[in-house]
């Protein structure tokens, strides 16, 4: 008996066994290595684009259109096309997305329908942009007869970015305390009146965040626009612009870099896109934080 006890008592080692120590060290090393590579990658991308683009930046390139006569290249039409496209798409997608989110969160009674709609939205989020481009071309350009135009591109982007708006709106609708709704009902408000006056004002931040995220996605989109919005670089006002074919910044970057070999202007566009991406991310994060803060305060 005592022998057995003796054999089971082991001395607790002073140091961690070598193998365990090695295992920990190696894994920790891997983590540092990977985060280092990732950070270096981001830093390289940003610095490379900015350093190569800065020498080519000039007031002229930003404010003129390309001219074969003078042999100059300007990106103003592409900037304007992008602005037209994003604004049009946002104006259309906002009511569609917010409305759908309100239906899912506030109105829907049938769980089955909610499930089906949510599944549809998830499916939309997963479809690659090239397929949106094809269907957009078939449906908007050919079937609806819009031709290759910014409007057809904008409508394609509407379908593409609906999931972003729905998701962010739904999230912020969920943060509105149900006490607010009950209070409004108790005071005799009907459903839509309650939503309009109580719920929606509470989730403006979420909706704005959704818009910014959607705008970011639209700014970066190219495959869906290639066949729907076209390649033209003409300078137009809004009405003419939206009904005619036009290249956005991303499409212009693709055409200049891949097909024309104009790397200078391509770098300028890449830098503009990078800055826009940074700005949209910053504002989305800022509004997101604001939303969380309000949510935390109201709890």
């Amino acid at each position: 008996m005592s022998d057995q006890v003796q054999s089971e008592v082991r001395v607790i080692p002073d140091s961690v066994p070598f193998r365990r120590e090695l295992y920990s060290r190696i894994l920790k090393g891997c983590m540092f290595l990977c985060i280092g590579i990732t950070a270096a990658l981001v830093a390289f991308l940003i610095l490379y684009i900015l350093v190569r683009a800065v020498p080519y930046f000039s007031w002229e390139i930003l404010t003129t259109k390309p001219s074969y006569l003078k042999g100059t290249i300007g990106v103003l039409p592409d900037i304007l096309n992008t602005v037209y496209l994003v604004l049009t798409a946002l104006v259309i997608v906002l009511p569609l997305g917010v409305g759908a989110a309100i239906y899912l969160n506030e109105y829907a009674r049938s769980k089955k329908l909610v499930k089906i709609i949510e599944y549809a939205v998830e499916t939309l989020a997963g479809i690659p942009s090239i397929i949106y481009g094809l269907v957009g071309m078939l449906f908007f350009c050919q079937f609806l007869g819009l031709q290759t135009s910014l409007l057809a591109g904008a409508l394609t982007l509407v379908i593409m970015s609906i999931p972003v708006i729905i998701r962010t709106t739904q999230e912020s609708l969920k943060t509105v305390p149900s006490g607010y709704r009950e209070g409004a009902y108790g005071l005799g408000a009907a459903r839509w009146h309650m939503i309009r006056t109580v719920v929606l004002p509470c989730c403006i931040d979420g909706i704005v965040t959704g818009c910014i995220l959607a705008a970011g996605r639209m700014l970066g989109e190219s495959a869906a626009l290639l066949f729907t919005a076209g390649f033209a670089h003409a300078l137009h006002g809004y009405i003419d612009g939206i009904t005619s074919s036009g290249a956005t910044l991303t499409v212009a970057l693709y055409v200049y870099a891949k097909e024309q070999g104009e790397f200078e202007v391509a770098f300028v566009i890449a830098a503009i896109l990078l800055v826009l991406c940074f700005i949209t991310n910053y504002f989305a994060a800022a509004f997101g934080r604001h939303m969380h803060k309000i949510h935390a305060d109201s709890k």
Binding site: T38, A43, L45, Y48, S222, L253, A270, L273, C277, N281
Partner: peptide, 19 residues
């Protein structure tokens, strides 16, 4: 680091292709 990762997620695919 997290905003940098977000930036990486937001960079348009043509820019990746270009670089």
């Amino acid at each position: 680091v997290e905003p940098l990762i977000d930036l990486l997620a937001g960079i348009p695919s043509v820019v990746y292709g270009f670089i």
